[in-house]
Design a protein around this nucleic acid. Structure first.
Length: 216
DNA sequence: TGTCCGATTGGT
DNA sequence: CCAATCGGACAG
């Protein structure tokens, strides 16, 4: 893992509303250590999902089920669920216990453990651009980091699964855009609660009206 | 118990 | 553009 990525983010970091935490998470570093090795990446795209009022959220209307139970738990824990029977989505629980908010991690910039990620994803890295196939998209990054329902509800406050402060993000470089694939959410569909780094080629979908940033 | 469907991905 | 694929949500 990167030695200069700073301290582990403490529980207090996550004990804020999901929109605030989402913005603050950009530029941080997610690390997962397993017996197969360590993989980590810098967060370049996230989405905030807020409590009962947010029609796009699994906790809309106060829904509380076996699946989304982790959203109601303490901040700084994982909420992982299976979607379309094939992909996992990795979320970071925020806000106080009982307030079901979370941040979906939508894309990472691979930093270390890329070989391990490539094996898990079953892709070959022939050119630099292939790195996008590892972690550009929520299902992809979950698979690349070995995140499944086995991690659902686990704390993110230390090994084997945690976040490092990293360099953070330049506010000028942060773009806010509507969330992806929440057409069912009515008026909540268009809220700019997807946050991404303008200059990152590793985002899943560039913001409206912008071309994908070039790889350097 | 039965039916419907998704905070996605990859191939046509 | 569309099929894959299955656990969970919800109605009855």
């Amino acid at each position: 893992m990167p030695v200069n990525a700073g301290e582990i983010l403490p529980a207090t970091f996550f004990a804020r509303d999901a929109v605030t935490v989402a913005r603050d998470l950009l530029g941080r570093v997610l690390v997962h250590e397993t017996s197969d090795g360590t993989a980590c990446g810098r967060l370049v795209e996230v989405e905030a999902y807020r409590g009962p009022a947010d029609r796009a959220a699994h906790s809309y209307g106060g829904r509380r089920t076996a699946r989304n139970e982790a959203m109601y738990g303490p901040p700084g824990h994982a909420y992982v669920y299976l979607i379309y029977g094939r992909n996992y989505c990795f979320n970071i629980v925020t806000a106080d216990p009982g307030e079901p908010e979370a941040v979906l991690v939508r894309a990472l910039e691979p930093l270390a453990g890329t070989e391990l990620m490539a094996v898990r994803r079953d892709v070959s890295l022939r050119r630099p651009a292939d790195l996008r196939l590892l972690t550009a998209g929520p299902g992809r990054l979950a698979q690349a980091l070995g995140l499944t329902s086995a991690q659902n509800g686990l704390p993110l406050l230390g090994p084997p699964l945690y976040l490092l402060a990293g360099e953070g993000a330049d506010p000028e470089n942060i773009v806010a855009a509507p969330r992806i694939n929440v057409d069912y959410a009515g008026e909540w569909r268009d809220l700019p609660w997807r946050f991404l780094l303008r200059d990152s080629p590793f985002v899943s979908v560039p913001p409206p009206g912008q071309r994908r940033a070039r790889m350097r």
